Simulated assay, not measured.
Amino acid sequence: MKSLAITIDSVRKTYGTYIALDDVSLDIKAGEFLTLLGPSGSGKTTLLMALAGFVRPDSGKLLLGDQDITRLAPNKRDIGIVFQNYALFPHMNVLANVEYPLVLRKAPRAEVRKRAFEALARVKLEDLSERNIAALSGGQRQRVALARAIVFEPRVMLMDEPLSALDKNLRETMQYEIRRLHDDLGITTIYVTHDQREALIMSDRIVVMNSGRIQQIDTPQRIYNHPSTRFVAEFMGEANIIAPGLVRRIDGVDASPEALMIRAESFHLDAKLAGRDGVALEGTLRAKAFRGENWLLTLVLDGGQEVLVCIPAALASGCAELATGQSMTAFASAAKVHAIPGART
């Protein structure tokens, strides 16, 4: 099975005065697992549906390898799709659901049965081939949808929030299962989610979208640690954007003339853990909350800005005794401080 690269070239889509996609361009590598991440209305699902052929762009091009698929019918695109609601046929059993794409393509009956069982084996459901869809758990239905999507050996896989209906533990298990399946098959995969943690765990690269535009394209590590905009910084986790002059190096010198991002979990209450080149923030404790694996402290700086400080339980022996209203200092190593030019606090 040979995967394909995808080129999205200046794609625009509007619905009346609403701009769903605003001149979006993106190159996706063959065999890559790329996630489209953003809040509701960001354009991520519209872009996925344009690739699937269910939404026609107003302008721009979509290329699958060297083939222009912008106006090609969905069933001619050689693309596997896993929908949010799985879209399984309730009147068919598991095996018949998985066989269906091959039946549509008029494959020989013996080949249909063989490839369907191979696909079920990949998702560890070969023993449930005769079971009715209604008798399956949510996780099992998800696996059937995956098997149906890969059975005809597509060169591209599109996945639209496929885990959103599952409970937390099953969702986390399926994240690793989908990534394992991707690595085994090498299919170019575009995955849509609004869940930041899911995107970080599963992706080779993440595309953060907002208001129909791409905000940043990068690896999970760089998206999280080196966001290019305030929106990306705050969307990806508990980010503090701190005004110039409020952050000082541990030696007392101003740290930066620009706004700085420091994630909540980057702080320590012990200056030694931040190192000689670390930074310090002084303020007043407004609130604290025990969250099991950590303590979340709200620190108010001079001028009233609030800063979230997350201390791991293993390093938080004194947090329970902290009293609101007391003065305190939080420290972070220089490697965890990221300047965001032009960011406003």
Score class of each variant (00 low, 15 high):
Gln221Phe: 12
Pro244Met: 05
Arg248Pro: 11
Leu296Ser: 04
Leu200Ser: 01
Leu285Gln: 06
Ser266Asp: 14
Gln215Glu: 15
Leu297Trp: 09
Met261Phe: 11
Thr189Trp: 03
Val279Gln: 05
Asp251Gly: 09
Asn294Cys: 14
Leu246Cys: 04
Gln215Cys: 13
Gly212Gln: 04
Glu198Ile: 01
Ser211Val: 07
Asp167Asn: 00
Ile190Val: 14
Gly278Pro: 07
Val232Thr: 14
Leu166Asn: 00
Leu297Ile: 12
Thr229Asn: 08
Pro257Gly: 03
Arg213Ser: 08
Ile206His: 02
Arg222Val: 13
Phe235Lys: 02
Ala287Trp: 11
Tyr191Phe: 13
Pro244Glu: 01
Arg249Val: 14
Ser266Lys: 05
Ile311Ala: 08
Val192Thr: 04
Ser256Trp: 06
Arg179Phe: 03
Thr188Ser: 01
Val253Phe: 04
Arg286Ser: 10
Val207Leu: 09
Ile217Thr: 11
Phe231Ile: 07
Glu238Ile: 06
Leu181Met: 14
Leu299Asp: 03
Ala289Gly: 04
Gln216Phe: 00
Asn240Pro: 13
Thr298Leu: 11
Gly245Gln: 09
Leu246Thr: 07
Asn225Ala: 12
His268Phe: 12
Ser256Arg: 07
Leu246Arg: 03
Trp295Pro: 11
Asp167Val: 00
Thr193Arg: 01
Thr229Leu: 10
Ile242Glu: 03
Leu200Tyr: 01
Lys168Asp: 00
Arg276Leu: 13
Arg180Gln: 15
Ile214Tyr: 02
Leu299Ile: 13
Lys272Ser: 15
Phe290Thr: 09
Glu238Ser: 12
Ala314Gly: 14
Leu285Arg: 02
Val309Pro: 10
Ile311Asp: 12
Arg249Glu: 14
Val192Asn: 01
Ala271Phe: 10
Asp251Thr: 08
Val309Ser: 02
Asp167Trp: 00
Asp277Trp: 10
Leu170Ile: 01
Phe235Val: 09
Ile217Gln: 02
Ser228Thr: 10
Ile187Cys: 03
Cys310Val: 10
Phe231Ala: 03
Ala289Tyr: 04
Pro227Ser: 05
Leu170Thr: 01
Arg222Ile: 13
Glu234Ser: 14
Gln216Cys: 03
Glu282Arg: 15
Cys310Trp: 00
Ala313Ile: 15
Asp167Tyr: 00
Glu306Ala: 13
Ala314Ile: 15
Ser256His: 07
Ala274Asn: 04
Ala271Lys: 09
Asp204Asn: 14
Gly212Lys: 02
Arg180Val: 13
Gly278Asp: 12
Ala313Val: 15
Leu281His: 06
Val279Lys: 00
Asp195Ser: 02
Asp277Asn: 11
Leu246Ile: 06
Val300Tyr: 03
Glu306Cys: 14
Pro244Asn: 06
Asp270Lys: 10
Asp270Glu: 14
Asp251Ser: 10
Val247Met: 09
His182Ser: 05
Thr193Tyr: 01
Glu306Asn: 15
Gly212Glu: 05
Arg230His: 13
Leu185Gln: 03
Glu265Gly: 08
Ala313Asn: 13
Met209Ser: 09
Ile201Leu: 11
Ile214Glu: 02
Arg291Asp: 07
Phe290Val: 10
Arg286Ala: 08
Pro227His: 04
Leu296Val: 09
Ile217Asp: 09
Ile223His: 00
Asn294Thr: 11
Phe290Arg: 08
Leu181Asn: 08
Phe290Ser: 11
Val207Arg: 02
Ile217Val: 15
Thr229Cys: 13
Arg249Gly: 14
Met236Phe: 03
Val307Gln: 05
